[in-house]
Amino acid sequence: MNTNDIEPNKSGETPSFLDQVSREGPFEAPDRYFGSFMSVLADKIEDEDVLENAPNLRAAGKENIFLQPSHYAASFPNKVMETIQASQPSATRTLRQLWQHPQQLVYAMSVAAAVVLLVVGMWVMGDQTHTQDTAIDYWSIIEQTDVDAFDIAEVFDLSAISFEGEEFSEEEVSDLLDLLDQSTFDLEETLIEGI
C-alpha cells in the first residue's frame, strides 16, 4: 500500500499505516477446518490414550525406514507420462494389434483384397477407354482372317455364343493371340461392337 493513499479519519488525523491493515492478516484456514476441529482433536486425545498403554510402540517412533534409489523420485513422473503416451492408440499400434488376432487379420485381408480389386477394376476401365479408338482396326484384321468372332470370345472366356462359321486352326488362334497380346485393345468391347 502506498502511504500517500491513506485518507484522514473523522477527527482529521492521519491514521497510522497499521490502522489501514486488516488485523486478520493474509492467513486462511482450509475449508471445513474449524467445523471438524473438535472431532479431530477428540480423536487425537483418544489415540494418545491408547498409545499411553503401548510404551514399546511409542519408543519405536514413527521414523520412515523405507528408502528410495537415488533419482527415483525425480525420474518417476517422466516414466509415468511416457508409459501413458505409449498406451495411447496410434495408427501403427492399431495395425500391429490387427495382426495379433486371427479374426481381425481375416478382416484386414478382406479389406486389402477389396482395395486391390477396386484398383484393378479402375485400371481396366481406364484401359478400356484408352483403347476404344483403335479397336475397330483390330476388328477389321479379325474379319480379314475370316475368324468367327464368337469363337474368339470363347477362347477368351467371354460370353460364349456360338454362331456357325468357319473353324480356325490352333495355328491361327496362336497367331491371333500373339497379335492381341501385343495390343492393349479390349477384345470384349470390340466383339460386342463388331457384332
Binding site: L57, A59, A60, G61, E63, N64, I65, F66, L67, Q68, P69
Partner: peptide, 13 residues
C-alpha cells in the same frame, strides 16, 4: 534393498 532404520524400527515393521 533400500531399507534403513535401526533395530527397534525394523522390529516395529
Amino acid at each position: 534393498k533400500y531399507i534403513g532404520g535401526d533395530e527397534i524400527q525394523q522390529k516395529l515393521q
